[in-house]
Design a protein around this nucleic acid. Sequence first.
DNA 1: AACAAATGTAAGTAATCACTTGCAAAAATA
DNA 2: TATTTTTGCAAGTGATTACTTACATTTGTT
Lengths: 173, 173
Amino acid sequence: MTEKQEKILRAALQLFAKEGYHATSTSKVAKLAGVSEGLIFRHFGNKEGLLYAILAVGENKMKTLFVDIVMESEPKQVIRKTIEMTSKIDVSDYDFWKLQFKLKWELEINSDKKMEPLKMALTNAFQKLKYESPKMEAQLLILFIDGMGSAVLKGSSLNPTEMIQFLLRKYEL
Amino acid sequence: MTEKQEKILRAALQLFAKEGYHATSTSKVAKLAGVSEGLIFRHFGNKEGLLYAILAVGENKMKTLFVDIVMESEPKQVIRKTIEMTSKIDVSDYDFWKLQFKLKWELEINSDKKMEPLKMALTNAFQKLKYESPKMEAQLLILFIDGMGSAVLKGSSLNPTEMIQFLLRKYEL
DNA sequence: AACAAATGTAAGTAATCACTTGCAAAAATA
DNA sequence: TATTTTTGCAAGTGATTACTTACATTTGTT
Protein backbone atom coordinates (compact mmCIF):
# COMPACT_ATOMS: atom_id res chain seq x y z
CA MET A 1 0.00 0.00 0.00
CA THR A 2 1.61 3.22 -1.27
CA GLU A 3 1.44 6.49 0.63
CA LYS A 4 -0.68 7.97 -2.15
CA GLN A 5 -2.99 5.00 -2.13
CA GLU A 6 -3.66 5.57 1.55
CA LYS A 7 -4.23 9.27 0.93
CA ILE A 8 -6.83 8.41 -1.69
CA LEU A 9 -8.58 5.97 0.63
CA ARG A 10 -8.63 8.47 3.49
CA ALA A 11 -9.98 11.25 1.27
CA ALA A 12 -12.60 9.00 -0.29
CA LEU A 13 -13.79 7.70 3.08
CA GLN A 14 -14.10 11.24 4.38
CA LEU A 15 -16.10 12.45 1.38
CA PHE A 16 -18.24 9.34 0.94
CA ALA A 17 -19.19 9.47 4.62
CA LYS A 18 -19.97 13.17 4.56
CA GLU A 19 -21.62 13.73 1.17
CA GLY A 20 -22.51 10.21 0.11
CA TYR A 21 -21.22 7.96 -2.65
CA HIS A 22 -23.08 9.41 -5.63
CA ALA A 23 -22.60 13.02 -4.53
CA THR A 24 -18.82 12.55 -4.39
CA SER A 25 -16.97 12.77 -7.69
CA THR A 26 -13.62 11.14 -8.33
CA SER A 27 -12.18 14.55 -9.13
CA LYS A 28 -13.12 15.77 -5.63
CA VAL A 29 -11.44 12.75 -4.10
CA ALA A 30 -8.28 13.33 -6.12
CA LYS A 31 -8.21 17.00 -5.16
CA LEU A 32 -8.58 16.29 -1.43
CA ALA A 33 -6.00 13.52 -1.59
CA GLY A 34 -3.59 15.74 -3.50
CA VAL A 35 -3.09 13.32 -6.38
CA SER A 36 -4.01 13.18 -10.04
CA GLU A 37 -7.45 11.83 -10.81
CA GLY A 38 -6.04 9.12 -13.05
CA LEU A 39 -4.22 7.55 -10.13
CA ILE A 40 -7.53 6.55 -8.57
CA PHE A 41 -8.33 4.46 -11.63
CA ARG A 42 -4.81 3.06 -11.87
CA HIS A 43 -5.04 1.69 -8.32
CA PHE A 44 -8.71 0.88 -7.88
CA GLY A 45 -9.98 0.35 -11.44
CA ASN A 46 -13.11 2.42 -11.12
CA LYS A 47 -15.16 4.39 -8.59
CA GLU A 48 -16.91 1.28 -7.32
CA GLY A 49 -13.56 -0.41 -6.80
CA LEU A 50 -12.50 2.52 -4.65
CA LEU A 51 -15.60 2.06 -2.51
CA TYR A 52 -14.99 -1.64 -2.01
CA ALA A 53 -11.35 -1.02 -1.13
CA ILE A 54 -12.57 1.23 1.67
CA LEU A 55 -15.08 -1.34 2.84
CA ALA A 56 -12.43 -4.08 2.80
CA VAL A 57 -10.12 -2.04 5.02
CA GLY A 58 -12.97 -1.35 7.42
CA GLU A 59 -14.18 -4.94 7.51
CA ASN A 60 -11.64 -5.75 10.21
CA LYS A 61 -12.86 -2.92 12.41
CA MET A 62 -16.24 -4.60 12.53
CA LYS A 63 -14.78 -8.03 13.19
CA THR A 64 -12.61 -6.88 16.09
CA LEU A 65 -15.62 -5.14 17.57
CA PHE A 66 -17.63 -8.36 17.44
CA VAL A 67 -15.02 -10.96 18.28
CA ASP A 68 -14.72 -9.81 21.90
CA ILE A 69 -18.46 -10.36 22.35
CA VAL A 70 -18.79 -13.61 20.44
CA MET A 71 -15.84 -15.20 22.31
CA GLU A 72 -17.32 -14.35 25.69
CA SER A 73 -18.70 -17.41 27.51
CA GLU A 74 -20.48 -15.70 30.40
CA PRO A 75 -24.04 -14.99 29.10
CA LYS A 76 -24.56 -11.85 31.16
CA GLN A 77 -21.28 -10.48 29.86
CA VAL A 78 -22.35 -11.11 26.26
CA ILE A 79 -25.43 -8.96 26.76
CA ARG A 80 -23.57 -6.27 28.69
CA LYS A 81 -20.84 -5.98 26.06
CA THR A 82 -23.40 -5.77 23.29
CA ILE A 83 -25.25 -2.95 24.99
CA GLU A 84 -22.01 -1.11 25.66
CA MET A 85 -20.78 -1.64 22.10
CA THR A 86 -21.68 1.77 20.69
CA SER A 87 -19.73 3.58 23.39
CA LYS A 88 -16.66 1.55 22.47
CA ILE A 89 -16.55 3.04 18.99
CA ASP A 90 -13.56 5.31 18.54
CA VAL A 91 -14.38 8.83 17.37
CA SER A 92 -11.70 8.53 14.70
CA ASP A 93 -13.73 5.67 13.20
CA TYR A 94 -16.95 7.67 12.95
CA ASP A 95 -16.53 8.25 9.20
CA PHE A 96 -16.28 4.53 8.57
CA TRP A 97 -19.41 3.76 10.56
CA LYS A 98 -21.32 6.64 9.04
CA LEU A 99 -20.44 5.32 5.60
CA GLN A 100 -21.71 1.90 6.63
CA PHE A 101 -25.11 3.31 7.59
CA LYS A 102 -25.23 5.54 4.52
CA LEU A 103 -24.53 2.70 2.12
CA LYS A 104 -27.27 0.62 3.66
CA TRP A 105 -29.72 3.14 2.19
CA GLU A 106 -27.93 4.83 -0.70
CA LEU A 107 -26.83 1.64 -2.37
CA GLU A 108 -28.54 -1.47 -1.06
CA ILE A 109 -25.39 -2.81 0.57
CA ASN A 110 -26.53 -4.79 3.56
CA SER A 111 -24.33 -5.42 6.58
CA ASP A 112 -26.91 -7.77 8.09
CA LYS A 113 -24.88 -10.89 7.37
CA LYS A 114 -22.00 -9.56 9.41
CA MET A 115 -24.39 -9.26 12.34
CA GLU A 116 -25.23 -12.97 12.20
CA PRO A 117 -22.48 -14.17 14.61
CA LEU A 118 -23.51 -11.54 17.13
CA LYS A 119 -27.13 -12.60 16.82
CA MET A 120 -26.13 -16.22 17.46
CA ALA A 121 -24.07 -15.33 20.51
CA LEU A 122 -26.93 -13.27 21.93
CA THR A 123 -29.49 -16.00 21.28
CA ASN A 124 -27.29 -18.47 23.17
CA ALA A 125 -26.81 -16.02 26.03
CA PHE A 126 -30.53 -15.41 26.45
CA GLN A 127 -31.18 -19.13 26.25
CA LYS A 128 -28.70 -19.86 29.03
CA LEU A 129 -30.41 -17.21 31.13
CA LYS A 130 -33.75 -19.02 30.65
CA TYR A 131 -35.44 -16.22 28.72
CA GLU A 132 -38.72 -17.32 27.14
CA SER A 133 -37.94 -16.27 23.54
CA PRO A 134 -34.16 -16.04 23.21
CA LYS A 135 -34.24 -15.54 19.46
CA MET A 136 -36.65 -12.63 19.68
CA GLU A 137 -34.69 -11.13 22.56
CA ALA A 138 -31.53 -11.25 20.46
CA GLN A 139 -33.25 -9.65 17.49
CA LEU A 140 -34.71 -6.92 19.67
CA LEU A 141 -31.35 -6.08 21.20
CA ILE A 142 -29.76 -5.86 17.76
CA LEU A 143 -32.57 -3.54 16.71
CA PHE A 144 -31.66 -1.31 19.65
CA ILE A 145 -27.96 -1.39 18.87
CA ASP A 146 -28.69 -0.37 15.31
CA GLY A 147 -30.90 2.47 16.49
CA MET A 148 -28.31 3.62 19.01
CA GLY A 149 -25.55 3.63 16.41
CA SER A 150 -27.74 5.54 14.01
CA ALA A 151 -28.63 8.11 16.67
CA VAL A 152 -25.04 8.63 17.77
CA LEU A 153 -23.68 9.02 14.24
CA LYS A 154 -26.41 11.44 13.20
CA GLY A 155 -25.78 13.55 16.30
CA SER A 156 -29.33 13.05 17.52
CA SER A 157 -30.50 14.53 20.81
CA LEU A 158 -30.34 11.08 22.39
CA ASN A 159 -27.79 10.68 25.19
CA PRO A 160 -26.07 7.35 24.54
CA THR A 161 -24.43 6.98 27.96
CA GLU A 162 -27.73 7.53 29.70
CA MET A 163 -29.47 5.11 27.36
CA ILE A 164 -26.83 2.46 27.97
CA GLN A 165 -27.23 2.78 31.74
CA PHE A 166 -30.98 2.53 31.33
CA LEU A 167 -30.71 -0.60 29.22
CA LEU A 168 -28.26 -2.28 31.57
CA ARG A 169 -30.76 -1.78 34.40
CA LYS A 170 -33.55 -3.22 32.25
CA TYR A 171 -31.54 -6.39 31.66
CA GLU A 172 -30.53 -6.48 35.35
CA LEU A 173 -26.82 -6.10 34.66
CA MET B 1 -52.38 20.22 -9.79
CA THR B 2 -52.20 19.20 -13.46
CA GLU B 3 -52.32 15.59 -14.57
CA LYS B 4 -48.74 15.88 -15.82
CA GLN B 5 -47.60 17.43 -12.57
CA GLU B 6 -48.91 14.40 -10.71
CA LYS B 7 -47.23 12.08 -13.18
CA ILE B 8 -43.93 13.83 -12.53
CA LEU B 9 -44.35 13.59 -8.76
CA ARG B 10 -45.24 9.90 -8.93
CA ALA B 11 -42.29 9.10 -11.19
CA ALA B 12 -39.88 11.11 -9.06
CA LEU B 13 -41.06 9.49 -5.82
CA GLN B 14 -40.65 6.06 -7.36
CA LEU B 15 -37.14 6.75 -8.62
CA PHE B 16 -35.91 8.71 -5.61
CA ALA B 17 -37.12 5.94 -3.30
CA LYS B 18 -35.56 3.20 -5.40
CA GLU B 19 -32.28 4.68 -6.60
CA GLY B 20 -31.83 7.67 -4.31
CA TYR B 21 -31.91 11.39 -4.91
CA HIS B 22 -28.45 11.92 -6.38
CA ALA B 23 -28.56 8.78 -8.49
CA THR B 24 -31.80 9.87 -10.16
CA SER B 25 -31.46 12.36 -13.01
CA THR B 26 -34.20 14.74 -14.05
CA SER B 27 -34.13 13.19 -17.52
CA LYS B 28 -34.95 9.78 -16.02
CA VAL B 29 -37.87 11.27 -14.14
CA ALA B 30 -39.17 12.95 -17.28
CA LYS B 31 -38.84 9.75 -19.27
CA LEU B 32 -40.72 7.67 -16.70
CA ALA B 33 -43.40 10.33 -16.32
CA GLY B 34 -43.77 10.61 -20.09
CA VAL B 35 -43.19 14.35 -20.25
CA SER B 36 -40.49 16.68 -21.50
CA GLU B 37 -37.64 17.35 -19.13
CA GLY B 38 -38.24 21.09 -19.25
CA LEU B 39 -41.68 20.67 -17.71
CA ILE B 40 -40.10 19.56 -14.44
CA PHE B 41 -38.31 22.88 -14.16
CA ARG B 42 -41.35 24.86 -15.28
CA HIS B 43 -43.41 23.42 -12.44
CA PHE B 44 -40.90 22.84 -9.66
CA GLY B 45 -38.11 25.29 -10.39
CA ASN B 46 -35.24 22.88 -9.92
CA LYS B 47 -34.47 19.32 -8.83
CA GLU B 48 -34.51 20.25 -5.15
CA GLY B 49 -37.92 21.89 -5.60
CA LEU B 50 -39.19 18.62 -7.02
CA LEU B 51 -37.96 16.78 -3.94
CA TYR B 52 -39.62 19.19 -1.52
CA ALA B 53 -42.88 19.01 -3.49
CA ILE B 54 -42.86 15.25 -2.89
CA LEU B 55 -42.09 15.68 0.80
CA ALA B 56 -44.89 18.27 1.19
CA VAL B 57 -47.42 15.87 -0.29
CA GLY B 58 -46.27 13.11 2.04
CA GLU B 59 -46.18 15.26 5.17
CA ASN B 60 -49.87 14.55 5.81
CA LYS B 61 -49.32 10.81 5.68
CA MET B 62 -47.03 11.12 8.68
CA LYS B 63 -49.39 13.38 10.58
CA THR B 64 -52.40 11.13 10.17
CA LEU B 65 -50.31 8.20 11.35
CA PHE B 66 -49.39 10.05 14.55
CA VAL B 67 -52.59 11.90 15.38
CA ASP B 68 -54.45 8.72 16.30
CA ILE B 69 -51.77 7.89 18.87
CA VAL B 70 -51.27 11.36 20.29
CA MET B 71 -55.02 11.90 20.76
CA GLU B 72 -55.40 8.66 22.70
CA SER B 73 -55.95 9.23 26.44
CA GLU B 74 -55.64 5.66 27.70
CA PRO B 75 -51.88 5.21 28.42
CA LYS B 76 -51.82 1.49 27.64
CA GLN B 77 -53.47 2.21 24.29
CA VAL B 78 -50.85 4.82 23.45
CA ILE B 79 -48.10 2.28 23.86
CA ARG B 80 -49.99 -0.47 22.05
CA LYS B 81 -50.76 1.75 19.08
CA THR B 82 -47.15 2.90 18.87
CA ILE B 83 -45.89 -0.67 18.81
CA GLU B 84 -48.42 -1.63 16.17
CA MET B 85 -47.68 1.46 14.07
CA THR B 86 -45.40 -0.15 11.49
CA SER B 87 -48.00 -2.79 10.62
CA LYS B 88 -50.49 -0.01 9.89
CA ILE B 89 -48.38 1.35 7.04
CA ASP B 90 -50.04 0.79 3.69
CA VAL B 91 -47.93 -1.08 1.14
CA SER B 92 -48.79 1.58 -1.45
CA ASP B 93 -47.01 4.11 0.76
CA TYR B 94 -43.78 2.12 0.99
CA ASP B 95 -42.01 4.35 -1.55
CA PHE B 96 -42.76 7.43 0.49
CA TRP B 97 -41.45 5.90 3.71
CA LYS B 98 -38.44 4.44 2.01
CA LEU B 99 -37.60 7.89 0.67
CA GLN B 100 -37.94 9.29 4.18
CA PHE B 101 -35.35 6.87 5.54
CA LYS B 102 -33.09 7.33 2.53
CA LEU B 103 -33.06 11.11 2.84
CA LYS B 104 -32.14 10.89 6.50
CA TRP B 105 -28.77 9.51 5.38
CA GLU B 106 -28.26 10.69 1.79
CA LEU B 107 -29.03 14.32 2.50
CA GLU B 108 -29.13 15.21 6.16
CA ILE B 109 -32.86 15.81 6.22
CA ASN B 110 -33.99 14.91 9.70
CA SER B 111 -37.52 13.85 10.52
CA ASP B 112 -36.78 13.82 14.27
CA LYS B 113 -38.81 16.96 14.96
CA LYS B 114 -41.93 15.32 13.60
CA MET B 115 -41.43 12.57 16.17
CA GLU B 116 -41.54 15.02 19.08
CA PRO B 117 -45.33 14.88 19.67
CA LEU B 118 -45.19 11.08 19.72
CA LYS B 119 -42.34 11.18 22.20
CA MET B 120 -44.33 13.49 24.46
CA ALA B 121 -47.42 11.27 24.32
CA LEU B 122 -45.34 8.20 25.15
CA THR B 123 -43.57 9.92 28.02
CA ASN B 124 -46.93 10.87 29.50
CA ALA B 125 -48.25 7.36 29.04
CA PHE B 126 -45.29 5.74 30.80
CA GLN B 127 -45.54 8.31 33.59
CA LYS B 128 -49.20 7.50 34.17
CA LEU B 129 -48.29 3.83 34.34
CA LYS B 130 -45.73 4.61 37.09
CA TYR B 131 -42.67 3.56 35.08
CA GLU B 132 -39.42 4.61 36.76
CA SER B 133 -37.93 6.52 33.81
CA PRO B 134 -40.78 7.50 31.49
CA LYS B 135 -38.61 9.68 29.27
CA MET B 136 -36.07 6.94 28.70
CA GLU B 137 -38.85 4.42 28.10
CA ALA B 138 -40.35 6.70 25.46
CA GLN B 139 -37.01 7.17 23.75
CA LEU B 140 -36.34 3.45 23.78
CA LEU B 141 -39.70 2.68 22.19
CA ILE B 142 -39.13 5.26 19.46
CA LEU B 143 -35.75 3.69 18.82
CA PHE B 144 -37.56 0.41 18.33
CA ILE B 145 -40.16 1.91 15.96
CA ASP B 146 -37.37 3.37 13.86
CA GLY B 147 -35.57 0.05 13.75
CA MET B 148 -38.75 -1.83 12.86
CA GLY B 149 -39.58 0.58 10.07
CA SER B 150 -36.06 0.35 8.73
CA ALA B 151 -36.14 -3.45 8.82
CA VAL B 152 -39.53 -3.71 7.12
CA LEU B 153 -38.66 -1.27 4.33
CA LYS B 154 -35.31 -2.89 3.61
CA GLY B 155 -36.97 -6.29 3.42
CA SER B 156 -34.85 -7.63 6.26
CA SER B 157 -35.29 -11.17 7.55
CA LEU B 158 -37.07 -9.81 10.62
CA ASN B 159 -40.69 -10.88 10.96
CA PRO B 160 -42.54 -7.71 12.00
CA THR B 161 -45.78 -9.39 13.13
CA GLU B 162 -43.87 -11.76 15.38
CA MET B 163 -41.79 -8.91 16.77
CA ILE B 164 -44.89 -6.83 17.50
CA GLN B 165 -46.47 -9.70 19.42
CA PHE B 166 -43.27 -10.19 21.35
CA LEU B 167 -43.11 -6.53 22.31
CA LEU B 168 -46.75 -6.34 23.33
CA ARG B 169 -46.09 -9.19 25.75
CA LYS B 170 -43.02 -7.39 27.09
CA TYR B 171 -45.08 -4.31 27.88
CA GLU B 172 -47.88 -6.51 29.29
CA LEU B 173 -50.45 -5.41 26.72
C1' DA C 1 24.37 -1.09 -15.29
C1' DA C 2 20.47 -2.75 -17.92
C1' DC C 3 15.83 -3.88 -18.20
C1' DA C 4 11.14 -4.41 -16.75
C1' DA C 5 7.46 -3.33 -13.87
C1' DA C 6 5.03 -0.32 -11.11
C1' DT C 7 3.77 4.42 -9.98
C1' DG C 8 2.49 8.81 -11.31
C1' DT C 9 0.60 12.81 -14.14
C1' DA C 10 -1.51 16.01 -17.77
C1' DA C 11 -4.61 16.25 -21.08
C1' DG C 12 -7.69 14.36 -23.09
C1' DT C 13 -12.61 11.50 -24.15
C1' DA C 14 -17.82 10.89 -24.92
C1' DA C 15 -21.71 10.91 -22.11
C1' DT C 16 -24.54 12.82 -18.90
C1' DC C 17 -25.72 16.43 -15.60
C1' DA C 18 -29.08 20.21 -14.09
C1' DC C 19 -31.01 23.74 -16.26
C1' DT C 20 -32.44 27.50 -20.15
C1' DT C 21 -34.35 29.36 -24.31
C1' DG C 22 -37.68 30.16 -27.93
C1' DC C 23 -41.84 29.19 -29.48
C1' DA C 24 -46.41 26.87 -30.01
C1' DA C 25 -50.81 25.29 -28.17
C1' DA C 26 -54.21 25.32 -24.71
C1' DA C 27 -56.80 27.49 -20.97
C1' DA C 28 -58.37 31.20 -18.39
C1' DT C 29 -59.83 35.92 -18.21
C1' DA C 30 -61.53 40.13 -20.18
C1' DT D 1 -63.94 37.48 -29.35
C1' DA D 2 -59.54 39.43 -28.14
C1' DT D 3 -55.90 39.14 -24.87
C1' DT D 4 -53.30 37.42 -21.35
C1' DT D 5 -51.63 33.55 -18.73
C1' DT D 6 -50.46 28.98 -18.17
C1' DT D 7 -48.90 24.65 -19.88
C1' DG D 8 -46.04 22.14 -22.74
C1' DC D 9 -42.12 20.64 -25.79
C1' DA D 10 -37.74 20.43 -28.76
C1' DA D 11 -33.44 21.73 -28.89
C1' DG D 12 -30.34 23.71 -26.98
C1' DT D 13 -26.50 25.47 -22.93
C1' DG D 14 -21.93 25.08 -20.33
C1' DA D 15 -20.32 22.33 -16.58
C1' DT D 16 -19.24 18.09 -14.70
C1' DT D 17 -19.20 13.10 -14.83
C1' DA D 18 -16.46 8.61 -14.78
C1' DC D 19 -12.89 7.04 -17.22
C1' DT D 20 -8.76 6.65 -20.95
C1' DT D 21 -4.53 7.55 -23.29
C1' DA D 22 0.18 8.77 -23.89
C1' DC D 23 4.13 9.55 -21.76
C1' DA D 24 7.46 10.44 -17.84
C1' DT D 25 9.54 8.95 -13.49
C1' DT D 26 10.52 5.92 -9.88
C1' DT D 27 11.33 1.38 -8.11
C1' DG D 28 12.60 -3.45 -8.08
C1' DT D 29 15.18 -7.30 -10.30
C1' DT D 30 18.96 -9.60 -12.51
